[in-house]
């Protein structure tokens, strides 16, 4: 791939790669996409994807961009409708790779029932990008009347997770560490809308939803507790983690609770609907579990009960994981 600068090369990229991959009927050839606006409230989100490596077991940066955007919309309980995609390509990127990613992206979008309605491409000099970055914006429609937000979280609420944690993070991390896990471990990257949709249809009075991404369970729950002015108390033994993820965390010296997911979310619901929520979540992933409870604001935003009743503080990771033991 050569530096295009918006000329002939770029338009060839669009015609040769993106249009066939995404399907042409929705992708505008004009400066903006004109789409029909359904009745109701809209949810709008934007996100950038810089994952490295750009292709990994269980997905690639393209499918991840679709899932990430769809999931962000789903977390407000919005049905995903439209997505736009901006690409920043590094000069020298293999066009075969780009083509694979574009196709994966198109296929993921079709599966998720979301239309890629606009796009943009820029090529930067070699060394100024990391192969490929994608920026997306998503639009979805809110078809319920719940206030799904951190401010709705109340002491007494139940905290559930939609499946076992850490698969995405560990897949990416072991790839980066150059370790062949010699297992079938794959990223958990997935579309969360079907699961969220089931919760809504089951009549759960959802207080908050949050996908577990960067910083893992630790970061995500710390933020939720901080914004809602509550404390979240986890039960360590209840957190679902698969054996491969657990042993790889030990090997790499990583904290499972700080490891990212791309297809798992937290549902915070009234205690009386905890059981019903669990059943609904388990229809999509049998590993879903009740992992904690919201309590009034305490010593720290996030606490965890370990074995034999020792209650630890889980603080927000400050930066990268640093050795602490002296």
């Amino acid at each position: 791939l050569a530096h295009g600068g918006g000329g002939e090369m770029t338009s060839r990229l669009i015609e040769d790669i993106f249009l066939p991959a995404f399907g042409t009927e929705n992708l505008t050839q004009h400066d903006s996409a004109v789409v029909s606006a359904p009745k109701g409230k809209l949810a709008i989100t934007t996100d950038s994807f810089v994952v490295h490596p750009i292709e990994f077991s269980g997905g690639d940066i393209g499918s991840l961009a679709i899932h990430g955007t769809v999931n962000d919309l789903s977390m407000s309980g919005a049905r995903p409708l439209y997505i736009t995609a901006g690409f920043i390509l590094e000069e020298g990127l293999d066009t075969a790779v780009l083509s694979r990613i574009a196709h994966s992206m198109g296929q993921t979008a079709r599966q998720a029932g979301i239309a890629i309605v606009a796009g943009d491409t820029k090529v930067v000099e070699q060394g100024k990008g990391d192969g490929l970055y994608i920026n997306t914006s998503g639009i979805g429609i809110v078809e319920h009347s719940l206030a799904i937000a951190p401010s709705s979280i109340e002491p007494g609420d139940a905290v559930l997770v939609s499946g076992d944690i850490g698969r995405h993070g560990i897949t990416i991390m072991s790839a980066r560490a150059g370790i062949d896990l010699q297992t079938d471990l794959q990223s958990d990257s997935a579309n969360l809308w079907p699961s969220v949709s089931t919760l809504l249809q089951s009549g759960i009075a959802i207080h908050c939803l949050r996908d577990i991404t960067r910083g893992g369970l630790s970061m995500t729950l710390n933020e939720l507790a901080e914004t809602s002015g509550t404390t979240i108390l986890l039960d360590e033994t209840a957190i679902p983690v698969c054996e491969t993820v657990r042993s790889t965390c030990d090997l790499l010296g990583l904290d499972i609770l700080q490891t990212a997911c791309e297809g798992r979310y937290l549902a915070i619901v009234p205690e009386k609907q905890a059981e019903q929520t669990l059943l609904a979540l388990q229809r999509h992933n049998p590993e879903a579990a009740r992992i904690g409870t919201v309590i009034p604001s305490g010593t720290a935003p996030l606490l965890i009960d370990g074995l034999l009743g020792v209650r630890r503080i889980l603080s927000k990771p400050y930066g990268e994981q640093l050795p602490r033991i002296c």
Partner: peptide, 10 residues
């Protein structure tokens, strides 16, 4: 491999 890739090897 972790050391070669400078992965979590401060």
């Amino acid at each position: 491999s972790m050391m070669d890739k400078c992965f979590n090897s401060p």
